[in-house]
């Protein structure tokens, strides 16, 4: 057997059914909180903010808000997906099954990324209810959506394996990812920052994701689109290398 497709399907289905079981947490909650952002920042405060490069503030923050949910939910879904079997002990079944690391990653990360992509599209549709939307480069929009979901699901998977308690599971998304997303230009263009802080901001990987994603909507970007794409691919490759190292060494999985 070259690929254990039955196992991939079984894990994928199991993970997706978990999402449906936790509908309020997985889908409804991010949609509600994103809607609140649109109401507060888009309609209430945004109406007093001038347009940015010809785009209303409410529309401008749509890509950033989608990215915010995408990053946090990808990490949350993937990290919980692999952490919980470790916590409950059911990981024994995964470790003793004829499943390769590649198949485990494809199924767990695939399920987490799928959930994030669906969520991203739901938030996009929700945004359409509040602000006029335009997507100038739909293919690129989908490409960034998929690449970001997969990359951050991989990062979530790594966190889930690394974590040995629920606090650690939460600490990176809350302490690192959320601040990086807020400071990565979700609600503003980094071009409004002083020159020095613009350079500092370029050290934030999320800047490239949001910039590329926003470009696919409005054809405006803080960073060249090819650099954004290159950086996104780089994060993907780095995350994949870490995950393969984990499986090769059995880090935090096997004694």
């Amino acid at each position: 057997m070259i690929l254990n497709t039955h196992a991939i399907r079984a894990i994928f289905k199991f993970e997706m059914s978990r999402t449906l079981r936790t509908f309020m947490q997985s889908i409804a909650s991010p949609v509600i909180s994103t809607s609140l952002y649109f109401i507060v920042f888009g309609s209430a405060i945004g109406s007093r903010i001038t347009e940015i490069e010809g785009i209303s503030y409410g529309a401008f923050i749509v890509p950033g808000l989608i990215m915010l949910s995408l990053l946090t939910q990808s990490i949350s879904n993937a990290s919980f997906g692999i952490y919980f079997p470790k916590f409950s002990g059911t990981i024994y079944e995964l470790l003793s099954a004829p499943v390769s690391p590649f198949e485990i990653i494809v199924s767990y990360v695939g399920a987490a990324a799928t959930k994030s992509i669906i969520l991203g599209l739901i938030i996009l549709a929700t945004a359409g209810l509040f602000v006029p939307l335009q997507i100038m480069h739909p293919f690129w929009m989908l490409l960034f959506l998929i690449l970001t979901s997969v990359t951050f699901s991989l990062i979530g998977f790594i966190i889930g394996i690394w974590a040995d308690g629920f606090e650690k599971l939460q600490v990176i998304p809350l302490v690192i990812i959320t601040p990086m997303t807020f400071l990565g230009g979700s609600f503003y263009s980094i071009s409004v920052l002083p020159a020095f802080w613009q350079k500092v901001a370029l050290l934030n990987p999320v800047v490239y994701l949001i910039s590329g994603f926003r470009w696919s909507f409005y054809n405006i970007a803080d960073v060249n689109i090819w650099i954004s794409l290159g950086m996104t691919f780089s994060f993907l490759v780095i995350s994949m290398l870490i995950v393969f190292w984990i499986f090769k060494t059995g880090y935090r999985l096997k004694s």
Partner: peptide, 17 residues
């Protein structure tokens, strides 16, 4: 804890290819 007996057994079968 949250899966049904049927789904849990079917899941194991799938996991083993």
């Amino acid at each position: 804890a949250f899966e049904t007996v049927w789904n849990a057994v079917s899941f194991s079968r799938g996991l083993y290819g």
